[in-house]
Nucleic acid binder design. Sequence first.
DNA 1: CTTACGGCCTGTACGC
DNA 2: TGCGTACAGGCCGTAA
Length: 278
Amino acid sequence: MPELPEVETVRRGLAPVLEGARIVRADIRRANLRWPFPPNMAARLQGARVIALRRRSKYLLGDLDTGESLLIHLGMSGRILIATAGAAHVPPGKHDHVVLDLMGGARITYNDPRRFGAMDLMPTEAAPTHRLLAGLGPEPLGNGLNTPYLADKLAGRRTSIKAALLDQRIIAGLGNIYVCEALYRAGIAPQRAAGSLSAAEVDTLVPLIRRVLDEAISAGGSSLRDYRQADGNLGYFQHAFRVYGREGEACVTPGCAGIIQRIVQSGRSTFYCPRCQS
DNA sequence: CTTACGGCCTGTACGC
DNA sequence: TGCGTACAGGCCGTAA
């Protein structure tokens, strides 16, 4: 589930439940996800009130009134399930690794079959220098991403533009899907060397990255209600993808007779239209 | 320094 | 029905 729009969608769904709420019980059901949980995690969460739920790149940060922040990453397969106050609480399932009970009766469950996700605790003021956050590039929806910045970062790079946009040190939060979608909209072939983009192409690309993410967040918002209905099965916006997962299908650009291709770049699938993108 | 790749885990879809 | 293979939205450590 997790690229930036999905994480932001989770944040927006979770914030009304979590912000202002006190954690009355933390059930840590295994010792680790991708890495070991921090020492005494349950005790450090129990009794804490959540002041704010923020997002940085694909990470969620819950600021607690204890002075610490809870960092959550969803990895490839992480989900957060919300059972609102009054809902019947079913026993935790196989991949329910962390369960937080809130004062008032709501329950937050972190579920992650592949366990590529992560959780950690740190002093709130130390969050920006946390090892997972320190090296991240600017937020793509913030002012830090602009044409001069991106042009500078891409200059001289021989790696593909696809790989460069996936590099979290250049832009934080883009993943495989939205890189494919943004390059398609910009008409830029994913195999192009990052440093070969013209200033005009970078100037085209930057607002399209933002637009794809904005549209995805808007679409994600519409499925929030389903998300809260507990079983976590989200359709999300596959229907909005123009190239991702569409290998062999006709290009949706009017008048284009192209067929969407799938290639593998640095071990990841790339989808693109060989006629529209050059 | 940049770039490429293996590995982490489990689940699912598909071909035989 | 069962088995093997490929693949999946991320990211780190290592090596060249």
